[in-house]
Amino acid sequence: MSRVPSPPPPAEMSSGPVAESWCYTQIKVVKFSYMWTINNFSFCREEMGEVIKSSTFSSGANDKLKWCLRVNPKGLDEESKDYLSLYLLLVSCPKSEVRAKFKFSILNAKGEETKAMESQRAYRFVQGKDWGFKKFIRRDFLLDEANGLLPDDKLTLFCEVSVVQDSVNISGQNTMNMVKVPECRLADELGGLWENSRFTDCCLCVAGQEFQAHKAILAARSPVFSAMFEHEMEESKKNRVEINDVEPEVFKEMMCFIYTGKAPNLDKMADDLLAAADKYALERLKVMCEDALCSNLSVENAAEILILADLHSADQLKTQAVDFINYHASDVLETSGWKSMVVSHPHLVAEAYRSLASAQCPFLGPPRKRLKQS
């Protein structure tokens, strides 16, 4: 649940008159999402009104509101027999009622949201009550392989729920002597030191190019640089560091992050930047690179990204790559990247197969709970 924001200063709310007192009302909304995959969808019983329910879910471990999704594969009634019906059901509720908006969509073979439908307002739910769409999607369109909505005969539904909580009022009075504290510009100011090479005390040599930097900042941000300058190493004695395995453009992006906490060109060089972040123990930059690479996972590059993640101990990226390969196994196994990995990294192939087997055979063990970014 997000923290209630402070109200904007009255002088910034309007260029008009300023009242002596004010009130700011925040209506709290808890948002969460749920993904439900139905394997072997074409084998569902086709009687009209037949119901399939998901397991229950909530916004978190401490949330007492429990929900589930309900599907009628062949419609709810005679009117909707040519459609799939989809509903959000409130299973248990400690209150007399709650209000919530919802959005349903289908994830296609690429994991993209399609055929989205959402409620136009927050509906009133009581325990045992459901709301949804009797005519969510035509069955003939859903079952047509050309539309790519049932890869490997799996129907994957994605649901986003927004639950309306209580409202909170914050009130106060205006004073004539309003003090406005300026925003912190530390990142910009440190970035200026790097860009202008002011007050530098060490030189970093990268592929024949020299960059002036500040030992204190490098040591504070990177345990690797800290070790170089702290001990009686040649880098500490000469205040000069030779860097041979990072390209200059990648190095500059890494230094921008060290000084400012930002990497504006990360998406263009996420793979190389991940390697640099791993070498210099820049954990936050490493996770930022993992996130960017996750966003660009595809059938063509899944094997290469899995190898990269394994090489640099990028655990979150590795998990996402394995899950992606499992979901698109029939396509990924035909790529040149996968065939190369079979020869060069057989242990990763074995890991992917083990994960695929456990996903398809849940009876082999208890269900695993899916539970950071600093």
Rank of each mutant, 00 (worst) to 15 (best):
R368G: 07
S2E: 10
G192M: 09
R370D: 05
R221S: 06
P264K: 04
Q373V: 15
V98A: 15
A219E: 09
P7T: 06
V30A: 04
K64I: 03
A350N: 12
L293P: 00
G16D: 07
D310L: 05
Y259Q: 03
H345D: 09
I217M: 14
P362Q: 15
G49S: 01
N239K: 01
E232C: 10
Y353W: 08
S355W: 08
V206C: 14
K262I: 03
P366F: 11
F136Q: 11
E234F: 13
K101M: 14
K66I: 04
K74V: 15
L364I: 14
L88V: 10
S298Q: 11
A359N: 04
V71A: 02
E97N: 14
K268N: 01
G208V: 02
Q127T: 11
P7I: 01
M228I: 12
E304G: 07
W22Q: 01
T114E: 13
G60D: 07
F158I: 14
V342E: 02
Q120P: 04
A352W: 13
S374E: 14
P5M: 01
Q373A: 11
D323V: 05
A219T: 08
G60R: 08
A227E: 05
W338D: 00
F32Y: 06
V161H: 07
T114W: 08
L107V: 15
Y87K: 01
S59Q: 05
S59V: 02
C205T: 15
D144T: 09
F229A: 11
E47W: 04
L218S: 00
Y24L: 14
V29K: 07
Y123E: 00
K252I: 12
L142K: 14
I27W: 11
E283K: 04
S358T: 03
S2C: 01
N265M: 07
P182L: 03
K115M: 04
W22R: 06
L218T: 11
Y24E: 07
D144H: 01
R3C: 12
T25C: 05
D315I: 11
K66G: 09
G365K: 12
F211K: 09
F136C: 03
F257M: 05
R368W: 10
K279N: 02
R138T: 10
N40G: 11
V168S: 08
L333D: 07
F363Y: 07
A219V: 11
T156I: 10
L306Q: 01
A213M: 11
R70L: 12
H345L: 03
A216V: 02
M13G: 02
F225W: 15
W36D: 00
S340G: 09
Q320W: 10
A277S: 05
S80H: 13
Y123S: 05
V206Q: 12
S226T: 12
M233L: 14
E304Q: 10
I27D: 00
E283V: 03
S105K: 04
E300G: 04
K110T: 03
D82G: 01
A227M: 05
Y123K: 01
P151W: 10
N108P: 09
L293I: 15
A302P: 00
K135C: 13
G60H: 10
A270L: 04
F363P: 15
E283H: 05
T37R: 11
D130I: 14
F141V: 14
E232I: 03
P346F: 06
P73E: 13
Y259S: 01
K53H: 04
L333K: 06
S105G: 13
Q173C: 03
E195Q: 02
M35P: 00
C361G: 10
I137Q: 12
Q373E: 13
S197V: 15
K237E: 03
C68E: 12
W67E: 00
P366S: 12
I217N: 04
C44M: 05
P17Q: 04
S330N: 10
W36N: 01
S374Y: 14
L356W: 09
F104L: 12
D153F: 06
M1V: 00
P10W: 12
C93E: 10
L364C: 15
V299Q: 10
R70D: 07
K215T: 01
R138P: 14
L190N: 09
C68D: 09
M117V: 09
E351S: 03
C202R: 14
V98P: 15
L293N: 15
E195Y: 07
E334G: 09
R354M: 08
V224Q: 11
E230Q: 10
K103Y: 15
H345F: 09
E12D: 01
S340K: 12
I217P: 10
G75E: 03
